[in-house]
Design a protein around this nucleic acid. Structure first.
Length: 376
DNA sequence: AGCCCTTTGAAGGCC
DNA sequence: GGCCTTCAAAGGGCT
């Protein structure tokens, strides 16, 4: 198993090493990249705005009018934001060998009505929270309060599955100590956020530690009906409750996913876009435009997420969610459906290899922003 | 209702 | 070890 082969150290993030970008002329390239990103974002935005204008968006014209300034403002803000982060993390993970603990501690009140941890947060609270918040807030539920140096609920030997061994990582308490004033930019909308404390019974880890990675088998985590104790059972779910199913433990988010969670709202606000596919494209490009240090922040976060996940669910394997087809909305897909999906994907790939049917979005991409969009 | 699209990264299986 | 596949989030679009 890969985990085993990681050398047994506490570095579960062996794979979190930074992607080696071109070293040659890197700075220049980075600058060009940023400049390009601006241009490119403008292209994408304007094409998308045009498109939405056509499709009767009443704000589209106004958006386009304020387009240039807005974009400029956003990029500046973005840089300031990142600068701020860098400053906050000065002496952080790459300067200090022993990572002193993350400055992640502004605890947003998850119970505030406007908090983006609300079920509808991603739809409504488009402008907010990301600033001044840090993704690691999501780790708060696993602070010292829950984690004693040797969690009593964790067996010394985690291996329960044959061939599965998820080693016990080092004392995490150091990671989750709460340095005074250590306020990062935590987005409460990120997966492992304090609101997970409100998880219903199905979101409760057997150890008693609630975890957002555990979602009811009936649906996507993002629906978050368990939020703030305001959970009201939809009929369908009430039905399903009759036949108890195993709670779903989701994969921990990787660095890019964490980045997306944090930045999505910003991009949506700035670009007046909602289509996730387009947003994700922009985010993907921005991700590449980040400096190594900036990316490192997210790799580190992701590493910690994995560590926690591993400690909480030592026997969990990513494979667990494969055949169950648990990522679907219904969450109750049959193996047959899963097989179908697999086949479809294979066929799709074959199609693309043989110049088969292309997605509408791919077509749109090429029409909207020809060569530039695909660069970086 | 449920899948698709789109992104990157992690993990697991297969050869 | 390299390659391939699946899943993680998100939400509009499409069937």
């Amino acid at each position: 198993m890969p985990q085993l082969s990681s050398g047994g150290g506490d570095d579960l993030g062996a794979n979190d090493e930074m992607i080696a970008f071109k070293d040659e002329g890197e700075q220049e390239e980075k600058i060009q990249e940023n400049a390009f990103t601006e241009r490119d974002l403008a292209d994408l935005k304007s094409s998308l705005v045009n498109e939405s204008e056509i499709s009767q968006s009443p704000n589209a014209a106004a958006v386009r009018r304020g387009h240039q300034g807005e974009q400029r403002g956003f990029l500046d803000k973005h840089r300031e934001h990142l600068d701020g982060v860098s400053k906050q993390q000065d002496g952080g993970m790459y300067k200090t060998p022993a990572y002193p603990g993350y400055p992640f501690l502004m605890l947003p009140d998850p119970y505030l009505p406007n908090s983006s941890v609300s079920p509808s947060s991603n739809k409504v609270s488009v402008v907010q929270q990301s600033h001044g918040m840090h993704p690691l807030t999501s780790l708060l539920p696993y602070s010292n309060e829950h984690f004693s140096p040797s969690p009593p609920h964790l067996p010394t030997d985690m291996s329960q599955k044959t061939g599965v061994h998820r080693h016990q990582s080092q004392d995490l308490s150091g990671y989750y100590s709460l340095p005074p004033g250590g306020v990062g930019q935590i987005t409460p909308s990120m997966g492992w956020s304090p609101h997970s404390l409100m998880l219903g019974p199905s979101g409760m880890h057997p150890t008693g530690i609630p975890h957002p990675a555990i979602v009811p088998p009936t649906g996507k985590q993002e629906h978050e009906q368990y939020d703030r104790g305001m959970y009201v059972k939809p009929q369908v779910e009430a039905k399903r409750e009759k036949e108890p199913k195993k709670p779903v433990i989701k994969k921990p988010l990787n660095a890019f996913m964490l980045y997306m969670k944090e930045m999505r709202a910003k991009v949506i606000a700035e670009c007046t876009l909602k289509e996730s596919a387009a947003i994700n494209q922009i985010l993907g490009r921005r991700w590449h435009a980040l400096t190594r240090e900036e990316q490192a922040k997210y790799y580190e976060l992701a590493r910690k997420e994995r560590q926690l996940h591993m400690q909480l669910y030592p026997t969990w394997s990513a494979r667990d969610n494969y055949e169950a087809g648990l990522s679907g909305v219904a969450g109750a897909k049959s193996k047959a459906d899963w097989g179908k999906k697999k086949r479809r994907k294979r066929e799709k790939q074959q199609d693309s290899n043989t110049g088969g049917k292309r997605s509408a979005f791919a077509t749109f991409k090429e029409e909207a922003a020809p060569a530039q969009l695909l660069q970086i």
